[in-house]
Structure formats: C-alpha cells, structure tokens
Design a protein around this nucleic acid. Structure first.
Lengths: 339, 339
DNA sequence: TGTTAGCACTCTGTCTGATTGAGTGCTAAC
DNA sequence: GTTAGCACTCAATCAGACAGAGTGCTAACA
C-alpha cells in the first residue's frame, strides 16, 4: 500500500516533528513549520485520510496526530533517506578503535560505549558464545600435587581457565603428553562437533588416563555451556530515562526488568539475525512485551571475518532511525576489517 | 544523649510503624496499634519533646511524625535488638553455598544474589583487587611463532590471561626457563611489593631476555591495575523501585547513576572498612550525594581467611536494619569458614 | 504533678466546576 | 480541489469547597 507524494510529505512532517517534540502534532504546525505551501484545512483532510489508512493516530478526539507503528514502518522503509553520519562522529568512531581492535573484548566494549554515547540510547551487544568457536589448543599447568589449571584457548583467542582436581598425582610431563594427544585430535574443531566418534577415539588413545580425560572434557563442556548465558554486553540504560516517554516509574521498571534478564536479551538479539543482516523492529513488532513501546535496531556483525554476533540500540519509537542505522553500519564495518 | 523508657518506646513504635507503612504516623495510631497503655494526648506531648530533641520530624504542620536520621541512628544503636534470622532463611543461605564455596567468584555471586533476594534491596560486593593478592606463579604458553599466552595465578586462585607479543621467536623451553626464574623471585610477593630491588635483581638474572621480561612485567602490572576498576559486583536494582520512596523518576535516575559509576561504588564501600568491621550509614551520614536518602549497611569479609572485601546492602532509610545486619553477619561467617 | 478529654486549628488531598487553548471536522464559498 | 470560517471536543490548569488526619492548647481530673 503506497502513498501519493503529498500524503507522504505530510506523514514525513508529522514524524519528524513528533521525533523532535514528542507531542502530538496538529495541522497548523505542519503548515507553518514545514514548507508544503498548503493550508491547514487541506492538511486536515489529508491527515484524516492518513488516519483512516492506519499511518497516524490520535490520542483523543481533537488532539494532534502521532505516528502509528505502521507509520514509522512506512517512514523507515520508504521515506527516510539514509543520510551520512556526521563527519566528526565518523572520525570519533574510527579514532576510538585505533590500536584497540585486537582483543575481541576491548573491541566490543568500545563499540558498546560508542553506540550508547552517540545515539544516547542503551546499546546491547551479543558476543558469540565460546561453544560456537573452535578449539585452538588446551594446556594443563600443574598447580599443586593433585590440582591442575586447564587453559583452553579458542581460535578467536578467547581464553578459559578451569581448575581441575586430578584423581592421582601427575607429573608435569604427563600432563603435557595428555594435552598434546587431546590437541592433536580436537584442535580446530568446535565443541558442538565433539561427537561420539571423535571422543571414543580419544579414549582409545588415552586408555590409561581415561578418568582424567573425562574430567577434562566435562570441565570444558560445562564451562563453555555456562558461559553461554553471559554473552550480552550492555550499557547506557540511564540515558533512556531522560526521554519524556519514561516519565513514569512503571515504564522504567518495565524496561529495567527487560534489561535485567540476560536470557530475554539474548533471545531478542538472536531472533532472525541469521536470516536478516539488518533489522528494525518497531513497537509491537517486538515480541518481548517489555519493549512494545520501543524500537530496536539490530545489526549482525562478524569480528575480523571470524565469528558472529549481533549489536543493537534500543530507543523510543520516535528515535532517529537514520542516524542509528548509519552508526551500526559503520561500527560493524570497522569490526569486520581484518587488521 | 539518652531517652527515658517511655520516649524510647514511643520512638520505637514510630519507627516500626513508619518502616512498615512509609506514612507519617500520628499519636492515635501509636496508642491503638502499639500497646503502651497511654492516651494519644500524652503521646502527643512526648512526640513534641522527641521532635524538639531531633529524633523525629514532621513533613508539615499537622501531619504525623516520621523518624529523622538521628532517630534511626538512636534506634539502630540503642533500641533495636538483633533478633535472629528466620530459621528457614538461615537454612536457605547455608544450602545455597553447599558445594560451591571453593571458587571465589561463585561464592561472591551467590552471596550477592542471596542478599538481594532476602532483603529485597540491591546488594553490592567489593571483591579484593588482584593487586592486593600475592603471586602464586606465572607460566607462558607458546601460541604461535611470536606470541605467547601469559597465565598469571594468584594465591587465591584467581587467574589472569594476557597475550604477549614476543620481540623474537622463542622456544617453549626458553619460555619455561624464563618463567621459572621469574617465579622463583616473585612467587609469594604482592604486585604492590615489586620494588626496584627485586626487579633489578631479576633483570640481573635475565640479562639476555630483558626486553621480554619488561614486556611480561608491564603486562602483568597493566592488567592488574586495569582490573582494579571492575571489582564491584552488583544486583537487585529493580527491586528498589518497588519502594514507595522511589515513585519519582528523578530519584530513580539519581540512584541508577549512583550504581552506574563503579568508582563511586568502590569508594563508598572501601571508606573506613579497614577500621570498622561493620558499618551502618544512615541518610546524610553517607558521603555520596546520590544516596543521602538511603541507608547503607556494610560488612567487611574475608574469604577463607585469605583476603578481604566488603559486602553491603543499600535500602531506603526505613529498611529492616536488624534483619539485614544478621544476614550479612551470617554470610560473611560462611565465606570466612575454611572448607 | 502527670494524664487525659475536648476542641479549635492547620494542612494535604481530592473533588468540582469554570476557563482556556489547541486542534479537529464540517460546510460553504472560491 | 482548495480554503476560510465556525462550532465542537477534549485535556490541562486553576480556584474554591470540603473532608480527614493530626496537632497543640486548655481545662479538668486523679
């Protein structure tokens, strides 16, 4: 369903005005502030049509109009032009990453902070779980008689440390032998690929140490599964409270409880992100009930070509979509770039 | 300045009532609900005295009275009896820790969650910084030609992983040699004790590898200093918003911004905790302006006799002090217990 | 001399009605 | 098809009235 030129212009004016004032906008305002050279009366007629078509709505009879979800959707899909980011902001982004793009954790933290700072809305980033990355190598370091530190390095240079209680005393050289066998079998594979065949081969090779091997493999799986839950980075929540739509403590509670449950966050970010690189979810398009008054912009990213996550901004429906989209685009591009 | 028996009883009644209703309390209420067998008129006279002495205050003429900071202080110091924790809660605490008291991180997380859940207020825990704990050992693992993973283990079994770029190619055995020399000199010492003497001795022993040594030592110091900032664990913020004193978005913003700045949190927790094992800070006694409407209860703890931190609960001034205090007491006792 | 009943007084919170202003929808003229 | 004009609607604001909770004071009582 498409709109003619004039209706489209009027819808745009309504949305732009509403974005900047958060007040329902009337026909007179549009006629005065936006140069469409038509009278308020005509605009009223058009607005009446737009309302009937579902693009705008009135909070009550005789108030101004505000965009509906469908209105925002039309705006994002057809009207909004992707204007380029402010030069200064682009420079800020680039320079913030300078020299800190190696470590994944640093890069993510910087991205998150940039998004929150520039958009002034909360930003959230889903980091890929360790279980989805391949094992580079493991090592075991003897800590005391019957205890070792298991060091697990994945191919994207994330490191996990796990203390392991050994069933009997090991020499350091025994441990090295053990780990070198494990490495030769499992290095380069994903945890999720550790099927019965590989594992039973391993047990064949390490018959004598099978209880240690079991402990080691279990520890790794346990830890990496545990890690799954804590993959969401998040910042900038307070800023959200400056928006007039959050003048109400119950709404604040609502949004905070959304941010508080990392599993919901993860679901929300993950959803469809394999299929769609870029997603803009407006109001009720969001499945999580806590954010049906908000819009979420998501962008999949990969880190130096290696593995995937999702980054997003959550704002009120009347957020500056164009700006936020360009920013996510830029940041994901920087992350992608191999150094 | 002490109060006579009857004034003390009346103050107690006012505080207890205010704690449960959050409404200014009048003389009639006290006479009816609390069995003091004196008439409202008499109570009014006493209240008038208490107000003059600064223990209670009136929000406006002809409203009921509410406790002042000084009133709460008197209550906490002289009136409140430390009643024992509910048995069920005590069991819950003990059982929550069962089998999970080894790893410091787990123990802290459980403590934090217990405090938030039981008191229904936000809980915050300061974990001791790595820089204050002694080095147990370091190891270096070769990752690729010119890159090694430096594994730093402290005596309380915290582990840090640092990737180090080597100036030239090393064999694994060279790295082992290097680390064993470092270990023999630095093992058992605190980072903060690494003075010039020790370090220059080390350089003497490792003349040939001095640039690698420098990289290693710098990396360790850098990382552990960085870590300092992220030592505060925190949960249960939303619960605070259920309290009637936070019906106002500006107050919410205030308190959220307090929780947002980890440095302020750290300062607040650290302050005087060396001198006083236990602290109750009521309203204006708090230095941080964001929480001058709240009370903070802090308790120093040590983990299995080893090193020290601080745990706390932040609530409205009309919180259940007795209960919160007993809970912190119990938890710090559990943490202290060597397994 | 301490306690109490009674009463006038004070202040908040809520309700009501009047008023204002922004904005619409409709009609008739251009 | 566009526009000016006008009646109409509704939220927001304000003032005044009123009820209710609670106090402080006074005078009587034990």
């Amino acid at each position: 369903m498409s709109l003619d030129e004039r209706k489209s212009k009027i819808l745009e004016a309504i949305i732009l005005d509403y974005i900047s004032t958060a007040e329902p906008v009337g026909s007179r305002t549009i006629s005065k502030k936006y140069d469409l050279s038509i009278s308020p009366a005509t605009i009223r007629n058009e607005m009446s049509d737009l309302e009937e078509m579902g693009y705008i709505e009135q909070p009550y009879t005789s108030a101004g109009r505000m965009p509906s979800d469908q209105g925002y959707r039309y705006y994002v899909d057809y009207i909004m032009k992707k204007n380029k980011l402010d030069e200064a902001i682009e420079r800020l982004v680039i320079s913030s990453f300078k020299g800190k793009i190696d470590r994944f954790d640093d890069a993510i933290r910087i991205s998150m902070e940039l998004i929150a700072k520039i958009t002034r809305y909360p930003s959230l980033i889903l980091a890929p779980g360790s279980e989805s990355s391949s094992l580079s190598m493991i090592r075991m370091l003897k800590v005391d008689e019957k205890r070792a530190l298991l060091v697990v390095i994945t191919e994207n240079n994330q490191v996990e440390n796990i203390f392991v209680d050994l069933p009997y005393e090991f020499k350091e050289s025994d441990l090295d032998l053990l780990t070198s066998v494990i490495n030769s079998k499992l290095s380069g594979t994903r945890i999720s690929q550790w099927n019965k065949t590989i594992i039973s081969e391993l047990y064949g090779d390490l018959l004598k140490q099978k209880d240690v091997l079991a402990t080691v493999l279990d520890s790794i799986e346990d830890r990496l599964n545990q890690k799954k839950e804590h993959r969401v980075y998040l910042t900038g929540i307070i800023q959200m409270l400056n928006e007039p739509e959050f003048r109400d403590v119950d709404k604040v509670k609502n949004i905070l409880s959304f941010f508080d449950d990392k599993r919901i966050l993860e679901d929300v970010l993950t959803k469809n992100s394999q299929i769609e690189n870029f997603q803009v979810l407006i109001g009720n398009e969001n499945e999580a009930k806590e954010i049906k008054e908000c819009s979420l912009i998501k962008r999949s990213y990969s880190f130096q070509g290696d593995f995937q996550g999702v980054m997003g901004v959550l704002g009120p429906k009347r957020m500056d979509y164009s700006n936020a989209i360009s920013l996510l685009e830029l940041i994901s591009e920087v992350l992608e770039r191999k150094k």
